[in-house]
Design a protein around this nucleic acid. Structure first.
Lengths: 226, 226
DNA sequence: CTCCAGTGTCCGATAGTCGGACATCTTTGT
DNA sequence: ACAAAGATGTCCGACTATCGGACACTGGAG
């Protein structure tokens, strides 16, 4: 009744976060996608998802439509599974990751005079994402982007497993290629990324000099991806 | 003009799609994400994105907040890049893909009496996503999930490249392992997926018999992922 | 120095979204 | 076998989140 003209807004928006304007619907939609991803082997049904993200079932139905259209999720009977559109999107991530890391790698390669690389973990393997060769050396290691090797072998793979309490970098020799030495440091502080930055050389690398430089480069890459 | 029946309802929602209730905001948010992914090496700035998805800049700002919070995009100065959250999500896709394909692979392996596999293309390489060994054979090929090999070698990889006008399946011998034969067929009709289904054996495989079975299995997998 | 292009934010009006409720189907229990 | 319980999918009016024009700033180019 009444409808008192809404003079000044009695209690406008206490719950709304001040200073940050966001999108509730998209937030819920992404929460939905995340919920589907998290319920890995279980059975994520629509009702489950509704309670998980704290919305009504009707809302979940609406939100599923765009997600389905883009292939991010698919319906398997009454269950909801992740879709293949995510693979297509993920394919586009690596090039942009490479672009972001190139400046730091370039500087590292030129400073040390050895081939520099960014390597990310993919399951139990490590994959070279970006490689930069120094411009002024007579000889250097040619290392191919896309190369994969076990996480447990080579400085690049081992560095990814380093924890906070471990030293910031490590060196190996001849683990992947006889005669080749590597020094690598993990990229820390970037959620969702297990990666390392390092250099490779056929000459012996002086850890006391190169180690800190690699560490700095890893920090720069982390900064660029933050 | 007529508007034949529709006795009640004068003209409630001509623009709104009938029968399908969707979410415009989420649709736009995903279009935004897609736009960022598509503008690969270019410079995707906020204004660009606004015009690309056909919304106001203010809308893009709002939509970016949840996307950023989830790490799906990140801001690099005034540019927008894809984030690493996509990698985390993509990691969860493969297990669900495997689950969907298992029944068809199981049936194929038991029927043929050879190891069956689902292989997807990842860049220039092929990776085994799911492997099922037959239960009743004395010997069979042991094939590891996660194995990678060039797309150009082996039935699994070559089959992925088959086009619509090509035959539905192909056979190879000794391309990946001397003495091993393979028959594989591409998984067709699943947008965003470049994959094949096949069998491997150390004995010679009769294409006339096994080929059609592989073809059927590939269709089943496609159906399960549709 | 000015101009242009682009960023980030506010606000009222609109239109999209919210969730309770209903009609079906499927499953469980006795 | 039948009924009760649970789930799915859809509709609708009330509400509120969203929309986009407008403004204030910032920074680089001419």
């Amino acid at each position: 009744m009444a409808r008192p003209i809404r003079p000044i807004q009695p209690a406008p928006r206490p719950p709304v976060a001040p200073g940050k304007e966001s999108s509730l619907t998209l937030e819920r939609g992404l929460a939905l996608l995340q919920a589907v991803a998290d319920s890995e082997s279980e059975a994520p049904t629509i009702s489950d998802l509704a309670t998980t993200i704290g919305a009504s079932r009707a809302a979940v139905y609406r939100l599923l439509v765009p997600l389905q259209d883009r292939g991010l999720v698919r319906r398997d009977g009454s269950k909801v599974r992740l879709g293949l559109g995510l693979l297509r999107l993920a394919t586009r991530v690596t090039p942009q990751l490479r672009l972001a890391a190139l400046p730091a790698l370039r500087e590292l390669a030129e400073a040390v005079g050895a081939t520099a690389h960014l390597t990310v973990a993919d399951g139990e393997e490590a994959q070279a994402i970006a490689v930069i060769e120094p411009s002024w050396t007579t000889y250097h290691v040619a290392y191919r982007v896309g190369t994969r090797h076990p996480l447990a072998r080579g400085a690049a793979g081992k560095a990814i497993g380093l924890r906070e309490e471990d030293p910031g970098w490590l060196a190996t020799t001849g683990e992947l290629q006889s005669g080749a030495s590597g020094i690598a440091a993990p990229v820390r502080g970037v959620p969702g990324l297990r990666a390392s930055v390092g250099v490779i050389s056929f000459q012996s690398l002086d850890g006391e000099v190169v180690g800190p430089r690699v560490l700095t480069a890893a920090a720069s890459v982390a900064e660029a991806l933050r």
